Simulated scan of single mutants.
Amino acid sequence: MLSEQATPVIRETLPAVGGAIEEITELFYGKLFTAHPELLRDLFNRGNQANGEQKKALAGSIAAFAGVLVEHPGTRPDAMLARIAHKHASLGVTADQYKIVHTHLFAAIADVLGDAVTPPVAAAWDEVYWLMANALIALESRLYQQAGAADGEVWQEMAVTERRTETPDVVSLALRRADGRPLAVPRAGQYVSVRVELPDGARQIRQYSLTSAPDEAAWRITVKRVRDEGLPDGEVSCHLHEHAQAGDTLTVSAPFGDLVVAPGDGPLLLASAGIGVTPMLAMLKDIAVSDPTRPVTVVHADRSPADHAHREELHKLVAALPDATLHLWYEHVDGPPPAGTSAGHADIAALDIRAHTTAYLCGPLPFMRTVRGDLLRRGLPAEAVHYEVFGPDLWIAG
């Protein structure tokens, strides 16, 4: 909770800081990476730095956190904090790095806002930063404890035991611990980070959902080759596509992620698009074991049947559940759509959504915004709609 003296200062200055936050974060990252180039080389996603997404994510999270402190005293955006904490833990972020960020962020704020940063303004925003940072540090420490790891020590060597081509741009890799020890048991829907050394010596990290069931003897990740028009191809995804083979060793984190199915017997909606199908596979496998009679509506949208990774597997998983239905949409179909599918974009508004449904979303941001909006209009409360973002969280939806 903000102090009494800081609250009016933040309320008054939030529009100015919010309006300048992208300029502030641009300068902040310049200062940070000049002083600590190893952070860009070995921790931050260089692709997201190049396309500006990381800057937008930092700006959005700070502004959202400050706004909640002002508008809803005594509360905090725990869903947002949990997503960030899980991502940080999967990267091995440690408490001392928050001090480094603080130094360069506040230097950037002073440079951009100049004389407007009076001592009371600086003190108030310092309070906001440390309220957010200390909350994240506590959450991340708890996650490390749950993983049985010292703070930041989440890495293990994993042997690739199988490689399978799912589509021309998607491969699956089965993983076991290289030392032969048992795997940690993830929660269905969680992800791991994979750290690879690239030709220039950088050790870049990316997250991939586990598509295996929690109790399987091997983990399985599914990697889509990242290709964005006008931007460099994905460094890690392309490296794994070109080099990861059965018998190789990868450096992989413990499992993290908070997009996991809550226990209970209420109806579920699993909505995904593209490679966002991956956490849903693990969820369906887990539901088949833990509560196979639970009502489940599965929605998936993709470019075409040929682009739909794990298509046959998804059909089999849904067919194995007695009260599950599958709804598929494809943007491009040669000829009539396959049986049980529709052409075009997913249309949640056309589905029968049961009362008290809990929804889980994963896919591109436009897809999730549309689905979430449709669900809210259908009467689902916001707290019943959960989502996972691959990459920086550019959508602070609670």
Rank of each mutant, 00 (worst) to 15 (best):
R195M: 11
I221H: 07
R225F: 08
T251C: 14
C238I: 15
S237M: 05
V260L: 10
G266E: 14
L198S: 01
G276P: 03
I275M: 00
S209T: 13
Y208N: 00
C238T: 15
L210W: 12
K224M: 05
S209K: 03
V260S: 10
E229H: 14
D200P: 07
R203I: 08
H239C: 14
E197Y: 09
S237V: 08
I205A: 01
I275E: 00
C238Y: 14
G234E: 13
I205W: 02
R227G: 07
V192R: 02
T249Q: 09
D265L: 05
L240Y: 08
L210I: 15
P186E: 04
A213V: 12
D215A: 15
A244E: 01
H241K: 13
A188L: 08
R187T: 06
V223D: 05
G189P: 01
P255E: 04
V185H: 11
D265W: 04
G247H: 09
V260C: 15
S272P: 00
R220P: 01
Q190V: 07
G257R: 04
T222D: 00
G234D: 10
R225P: 05
A213L: 07
G247Q: 05
D248W: 14
R187I: 03
F256N: 03
R195Q: 14
A271G: 06
D248G: 05
P232D: 08
R187W: 08
V196Y: 11
Y191T: 06
A213N: 09
R203E: 13
A273T: 08
A217H: 12
A246Y: 02
A218W: 08
R187P: 05
P199L: 08
R203P: 10
